[in-house]
Design a protein around this nucleic acid. Structure first.
Lengths: 184, 184
DNA sequence: GTCTATATCTTGATAGAC
DNA sequence: GTCTATCAAGATATAGAC
């Protein structure tokens, strides 16, 4: 009775690994833990991901795609440049508010592996650069200048490493910055 | 090599360990590396620091004392509440600008060991709480309200995980927030 | 006696073999 | 899916220099 090769094995393993890596950190989680959480054999894990670094890179790529999907979805409903910027900021704030939030996965990885130049590190750095570039494009599109891009990135950086309680403060503040003040 | 004079042994070890821990992360640095960098025997290391956790706690406490000394020094010259707040912010910005800056040591530790409740984790959490409380006290003393404390903490958080280039942006911005605007 | 150096024990991790 | 080789790291114990 040959087992039917499960269609989503790679995804199953990756999803399990991603959850563990994000919650406990990449260094702290062993391949054995991933195997146990995925409910598969060790051979399968190494068949799909020949090394832990490749699994970590896949984890960061998965996270990137999830973030991009969520951001694209959030931006889909707004055409106005200011609305689009605020939609992005709101989406980030929502992600910070989600239970189990433990900071930005990419920044966390780079903190765990400082000075590293392997593939996961490159994925993380690329995401952060692209993420900043996207934010800057939206700020400039909404009529902001270079100073405002710096300031908003500062606040968003603080938001990423902050608590859910600060999410609303950040959103409200950035709204104030880019919307004409309403008289009371 | 020549025998290390006895009295400063603990400090020598701790200084060496602190440099390595901050630069490469606590997890990535082994006790053997600390021994080599300190130029002492393994026995002596374990005599002064019975476990790696105790060495890590000592590292964070040392960092805390260094930060507190620098902040106290920066605040010494200002009596005016607004000046004191800006002196603190400027001191933080200067520390971010220092070559070799690799983020806040306490946040980095908590990122490396999420969910940990041992002594180093408690030291790190206590520092962050005290640090925020001090900042809030200065903001309130300078005439700010609760909203301003939240906003300034957001910016300072972003500054900690930011680049030296953003340090000036943060200082200028906070200056603008707490000083009466000067007419052009 | 104090410190260095080394040898070793134990644990846990990556990885590959069966 | 289990079993095992290999290695690194934390921690301890022992042997030897000053």
């Amino acid at each position: 009775m040959a087992r039917t090769p499960a269609p989503g094995t790679r995804d199953t393993i990756l999803t399990a690994a991603a959850g563990l890596f994000y919650e406990f950190g990449v260094r702290a989680v062993g391949m054995a833990q991933v195997v146990e959480a995925a409910g598969c054999g060790k051979n399968l894990l190494y068949k799909h991901f020949p090394s832990k670094a490749e699994l970590a890179a896949a984890y960061l790529n998965l996270t990137r795609h999830e973030r991009e999907r969520a951001v694209t979805e959030a931006l889909r409903w707004s055409a106005d440049p200011v609305d689009r910027l605020l939609a992005l900021v709101t989406e980030i704030a929502d992600s910070v508010r989600r239970p189990g939030y433990r900071g930005c996965a990419f920044r966390n990885y780079l903190t765990e592996f400082p000075g590293e130049t392997d593939e996961p590190a490159r994925v993380a750095q690329a995401y952060l650069a692209d993420s900043r570039a996207q934010m800057d494009r939206l700020v400039l599109g909404a009529g902001g200048d270079a100073l405002l891009t710096d300031r908003i990135w500062l606040v968003v950086n603080g938001l990423y490493s902050g608590t859910p309680a600060q999410a609303s403060v950040a959103v409200d503040w950035i709204t104030e910055m880019v919307r004409p003040t309403e008289a009371p």
